[in-house]
Nucleic acid binder design. Structure first.
Lengths: 212, 212
DNA sequence: AAGAAATATTGACTGCAGTCAACTTTTCCA
DNA sequence: TGGAAAAGTTGACTGCAGTCAATATTTCTT
């Protein structure tokens, strides 16, 4: 058996993540030092850097693992026949709820995700592409149903929704919108995106466009 | 005269900013230490913290100063009669060019701006409100011309464009789009936003909607 | 099985952001 | 004008992220 090393590596990584989950949860990210984390995981400080490049990578890896599962689950289990608006709201709200469980997490994660360092680019792009590809089938179905224009690239549609999601999180972090207001706010933004910001030539606006 | 102090404060602040501009430009933000910066500005290290709360605040203040001027200039000098699409593209592209002059600047600035720390919230919100208010008149004019729906709050329209701008910068930082592609990309996103992602009931799509 | 090569672990060390108590300069007021 | 209070300046100090040369463990080769 030539796998002692691999087994140990996995164990150690798991131990770090586990210790991180506990300590970050208890004391917060900034107030947990790497040395503390190493002690809690039962390893030396330097070892951590064999698994993660920076401190915030640990946080990031943690979020990424969780989110990848979530994405997978959401996009495959999604009811592909309900209106694309509902699908998008439901998917992005799940992500939003996951992320905003902890304010500090949310800020750091979004900073890294939306505006990544050059070092993280490759990993980041792969993740993003992966996510986008999960969304594509939903858009294709919606195009077939006539809910989305088909003279646009799927990547651009995806980008459009993603941009509005970035705005949502930004507004939440700034305190412009509260946790409970997030869902209606996102729905409104997505509806705006679908219907367009310019007046529609004839069509009566569909339900619930104007409130307040 | 009770203004010796004030005069000195202004001088010192200016000296810090000036030294920062030079050093950050020469060596980059990360490789410039606060001690170095202080020496270059001819003051002690601790003094800097009387003017800025953190190192990246210096960078941020610098960008903010420049951008405030830019915003003021762009929104007042804007030709309020040309289509809102052109106005928005032109305004946001000016900001984009300013920001992306230096890659590192761009990343840190956007991280702080889109996802600010709690400490910076008040300052940030004030800035943002200020900016948004400069944009409102442009939207109002566009509404009068019938280019924008008037059953939406101006803040939401502003937010919509801003979200797409965030996406643009994010995509640029990720290398998904190059510097020259930025303008057409932004135009396309904004056009999508105006026309809507769902098919228009009758109207023939206006010029240049689909290009590879 | 022996020992050479490859890989993983470690904690003392480095460098820097940010603090703070002692000190200096300016302003205020009698 | 003198001297007390307020405001500003300072660099030695603290704490922590990240490095690295020395050491330990695992795998490969014969």
């Amino acid at each position: 058996m030539t796998g002692v090393r691999e087994t140990k590596k996995k164990q150690t990584r798991k131990a770090i993540m586990q210790a991180a989950m506990v300590l970050f949860g208890e004391k917060g990210f900034e107030k947990t030092s790497i040395e503390e984390l190493a002690r809690a995981a039962g390893i030396g400080k330097g070892t951590i850097y064999g698994y993660f490049q920076t401190k915030s990578d640990i946080l990031h890896a943690f979020c990424e693992d969780e989110l990848e599962c979530l994405h997978e689950e959401l996009t495959t289990n999604a009811d592909k026949e309900i209106p694309i608006l509902q699908q998008m709201v439901s998917i992005y709200m799940s992500e939003f709820r996951q992320i905003t469980e902890n304010r500090e997490f949310a800020r750091l994660f979004m900073q890294q995700t939306a505006f990544p360092r050059d070092v993280d680019l490759d990993r980041h792009l792969a993740n993003e592409d992966n996510y986008f590809k999960l969304l594509f089938p939903l858009f294709e179905k919606a195009q077939e149903r006539g809910e989305l224009r088909n003279d646009m690239e799927l990547l651009h549609i995806t980008g459009h929704f993603y941009g509005l999601y970035l705005l949502l999180v930004s507004a939440w972090l700034s305190g412009r919108i509260g946790t409970e207001e997030a869902e209606p706010a996102l729905e409104m933004l997505f509806r705006q995106a679908l219907e367009g910001l310019q007046p529609r030539p004839d069509q009566t606006p569909s339900t619930g466009t104007s409130h307040e």
